[in-house]
């Protein structure tokens, strides 16, 4: 028996909007530690990892670990039927081939339930080793989204370079080139508006902007984003989900032939 009650149902709506364009089908894994997902995009270049810890749910019952295969477009369609302030409960029986999403209005005067068929999805699970990154940039998530959008009107790839002076996002294309430099500004009044750079070593990597733009669909989940880079690892773009966990995207770099 699985029963997860999430008071802030809008979080789940935002999570689905942030991953459905990158991944079509995925297994949602549920265990005593929480509700999680790990899935690669169809070209095996990017990976999305979600964790919603059990203690972030108002009620979390998971009698035994369960993996539920779902089509993310279908889940997104169902969740669009929930209002932003609805409480969402996910229910499934052990060995069931369906999952039920229940939406309750905050005043408890409207209750809707939607049953969805589960799918059998064979996915490759990747072991991601813990790593120390050479550079970690934390910046406002809206700023990062704006930069990725602006640069993609000029080029297809972005070079992200971190030095102690700041982080530089560069691109070039048929019409010309562009560089955007963000410097540390940790003295701003609101912490969420700060750009901070933890740098052990300078690092510069090239990525496909198409994926970066897809990651920025997670912007509504968090006011800040962290970008962790090492020269021999995929970049990690992380959006923290307040009090509950995270949504992380891993992207393999492009290397010069």
């Amino acid at each position: 028996m699985l029963e997860l009650r999430l008071v802030q149902g809008s979080l789940l709506k935002k999570v689905l909007e942030a991953i459905k364009d990158l991944v079509t089908d995925a297994n949602f894994d549920c265990s005593t530690s929480g509700f999680s997902l790990q899935a690669m995009d169809s070209s095996h270049v990017a990976l999305v990892a979600l964790l919603l810890r059990s203690d972030g749910f108002e009620h979390f019952r998971c009698d035994r670990s369960l993996s539920m295969g779902m089509n993310l477009n279908h889940v997104s369609k169902l969740l669009k039927c929930a209002s932003n302030d609805d409480i969402i409960t996910i229910k499934a029986d052990d060995d069931a081939d369906t999952v039920t999403f229940m939406f309750e209005s905050p005043r408890q005067d409207k209750i809707a339930d939607f049953e969805m068929k589960l799918m059998d999805i064979k996915s490759e699970h990747l072991g991601i080793p813990e790593a120390e990154y050479q550079s970690i940039v934390k910046m406002p998530s809206q700023e990062f989204a704006r930069i990725c959008k602006d640069l993609s009107s000029i080029g297809d790839t972005v070079v992200i370079s971190v030095t102690k002076e700041g982080v530089k996002f560069s691109t070039r294309g048929d019409i010309g080139s562009a560089n955007i430099v963000c410097r540390q500004n940790s003295t701003v009044d609101k912490p969420e508006e700060a750009t901070t750079i933890q740098m052990k070593e300078p690092v510069s990597l090239t990525f496909a902007l198409r994926y970066m733009n897809s990651f920025t669909k997670a912007t509504p989940l968090s006011s800040s984003v962290s970008i962790s880079m090492s020269s021999d690892l995929p970049v990690v773009v992380e959006y923290k989900i307040a009090e509950m966990g995270y949504l992380r995207y891993y992207l393999a770099p492009k290397i010069e032939d």
Binding site: V45, L47, P129, I255
Partner: peptide, 14 residues
């Protein structure tokens, strides 16, 4: 010319 690297080069497939 840039070549896109696959994730599996970095991570173990379990």
């Amino acid at each position: 010319i840039f070549i896109q690297v696959y994730l599996a080069i970095y991570f173990l497939i379990l």
